[in-house]
Amino acid sequence: MSKRLEAEIPALRRYAFGLTREHAAADDLVQDCLERALSRWYLRRPDGDLRAWLFTIMRNLNISAGRQTQRRGPHLALDEHLTPRADATQDHAIDVRDLLATLGSLPEEHCSLLLLVGVEDLTYEQAAAALGIPVGTVMSRLSRARRRLRDLLEHRAPVSLRRIK
């Protein structure tokens, strides 16, 4: 069990960083996710997809953490936005922040989908399982998410949520 879980940590950290864009917050999320996975290991379907299961746990934790922050008020926001990040001097750091920040301004479901499919290489079926939606919805949502990201990067007004093919 330890080995199987540990093998997934790099991917979990990458997804968490994509979601939170903060190194410490990302590792907090990974830690919560792993603790939850350990305490619920007996609930996992033995033949199920470990990776998709872990991503599902992490996504749900991130969503409920977001809800709590909303309830308490974003008390961290000032500091985090005004303080330059340690990696700001590295090459391409500005671009990293732009693309990731833009990604973060998308709705959570779009952001997760772009990360899970585009970066973590989940199959469309795995992504559907992780997000609890049908595969058909994955495809249309992915298409919308990519279009919105592009629009935002080009500073175009985001397209409306529904577009007739």
Partner: peptide
């Protein structure tokens, strides 16, 4: 290109050493 950019920008995170607090043991 956006997809590729996102992948390459997050690539460093994947190969970072894992902090001790995340070790399963």
């Amino acid at each position: 290109d956006d997809r590729d950019a996102l992948r390459s920008q997050l690539a460093a995170k994947f190969v970072e050493p894992i902090p001790a607090r995340l070790r399963i043991d």
